[in-house]
Design a protein around this nucleic acid. Sequence first.
DNA 1: CTCATTATGCTCAATAGGAGTATTTATTAT
DNA 2: ATAATAAATACTCCTATTGAGCATAATGAG
Lengths: 316, 316
Amino acid sequence: MHNGTDMTPPPGTSDAVAIELNAVLVALTANQPLVLTLEDGTLLPSGPFATEHPTLQSGVRAWVERQTHHPLGYVEQLYTFADRNRPASDGERRVVSISYLGLTRERLSAGARDPEWRSWYRYFPWEDWRAGPSPLVAQIILPRLAAWAAAAKDPGLRRERRQRIDIQFGDGVANWNEDLVLQRYELLYEAGLVAEATRTAADIVPGMPMRHDHRRILATGIARLRAKIKYRPVFFELMPPAFTLLQLQQAVEALAGRAMHKQNFRRLIDQQGLVEPTGASTSESRGRPAKLFRFRREVVQERAVSGTKLPLSRPL
Amino acid sequence: MHNGTDMTPPPGTSDAVAIELNAVLVALTANQPLVLTLEDGTLLPSGPFATEHPTLQSGVRAWVERQTHHPLGYVEQLYTFADRNRPASDGERRVVSISYLGLTRERLSAGARDPEWRSWYRYFPWEDWRAGPSPLVAQIILPRLAAWAAAAKDPGLRRERRQRIDIQFGDGVANWNEDLVLQRYELLYEAGLVAEATRTAADIVPGMPMRHDHRRILATGIARLRAKIKYRPVFFELMPPAFTLLQLQQAVEALAGRAMHKQNFRRLIDQQGLVEPTGASTSESRGRPAKLFRFRREVVQERAVSGTKLPLSRPL
DNA sequence: CTCATTATGCTCAATAGGAGTATTTATTAT
DNA sequence: ATAATAAATACTCCTATTGAGCATAATGAG
């Protein structure tokens, strides 16, 4: 039934493909999660993979750092896509695109029109629940999704659609799981409610589209980052050397897209010993001056492996 | 400083590469976590990516199912490697290997010598802590790692090595984090303690090596699966249609490589409503017959998105 | 000086999680 | 039969974690 080489076909039968790298580069300014875009916000930075780099990771890092003139604090592979609906631009070769998530502390020239940092909530406005449940969900998205579900002829399919909607979007008020960025985007895509999925502008939900599958890649990056901050202290890559606890909290809130209980946030942070006071304090805001903190290298490094906690569990 | 096309180099400059797929296929029998291997256990199944498949995922699925004649319950992309130290076998083209994790309920012909299912603990014996702390760690690995750390001339490097060892291996008794499979393998590799990393058989630690970087890919798969079972009920893909709670627990223990408290395991499982009694019971073992359970489809599906819990938190 | 505003300390109740004891129901040995 | 043993299953306890809110402290604005 099986011979020895059954599962290892002879080499060389694989077609040649071109490798393209995509990057979701994230920074944080003024409580907005920013992502680096090109071409008036319609593309993520991307480019061919040059063979001179020993590894993919180092290729991405070098390529980004050459362009942004800033060090990339953290790089993580996101996903490899090879969907056939995007033909290679050089004619025959199929494109395999490998995407990366990168975190950086600095941003490049702010006003620039082409490499431009934009809040990711321009692409996913429904993902911002920092000021409470996003009205977009209850008022626009859920009704249209409900219509889409109802449009299914088969009762089983109808039920399945309703269940997926419920799991991924909740009821518009409670049961919001901020990690499901990608699933939600894909559901909207499937329902024809995003620009990339349809030619009729009729039922499209707010949120700026991107070319190719770049918005999907962005969704993948956001989802990964949101999931990650709950157990790895990656957010420190995005912070300045010294910061107040409120700034730290707001940074996390910007990423997670939801507000957190202030006192409990502080409790958790210093329980874990992630930060230490610098001694200085700041009074840039109106009220009582806040102490400044810095990350404790050793602990952050250790937690990078063994895990952290954030008060981001409860469904609402 | 930046012009419009700065970050999108012209297409076509990317070199042609060959895509290779690797699969970590996992099954579970007699409380052993099994992985499908070839060539006397020295290789993972791998093959070229054929262009006729619309997506990578469907390519993997089709390819595996054609070979094993069994459905693949769950497929997940693991990682994409493009390290230059592995030249393409067809001459010039560089190989990019995309690896996948697949879970399956059935195993194919048991006695076969070539596509053969082997316990993954043959490759990573130190990862099995089901019967308590693995003596391998305390008696063989830690002393050798300590020697490696001590061998560093630079005191800073020495300290860093010691810290990494401590975080990843603990003290041999406590502080074992079962998720760090990949990091541990990479540390051993760096220290020259695995066969793949050295030509001298002197200090090598027990555990069967594989060719190329396949053992590393396997480590990636195990690590991913161990991390995943803590918050996604993927283990149900590995179970038969009906099972006892003890069997379920032992399945999870086999994957996680550590024992769990029986009563608490049951409490957690039925708190979450993941399973329901079939009505039947079995008395294959000696004691009181156990009720048989099955997974509840709806709940498993929902949890697949929203998360599960397992009593696998404490460091020892 | 009073108020608005933010920082920070502390309490409380509910829950989750780790560990152990007790009881029930079978099989196996005597 | 009866005793010994092995599992399954039911409860109890204790502690740590977590969500929520109140209270107090320190500042600038008017």
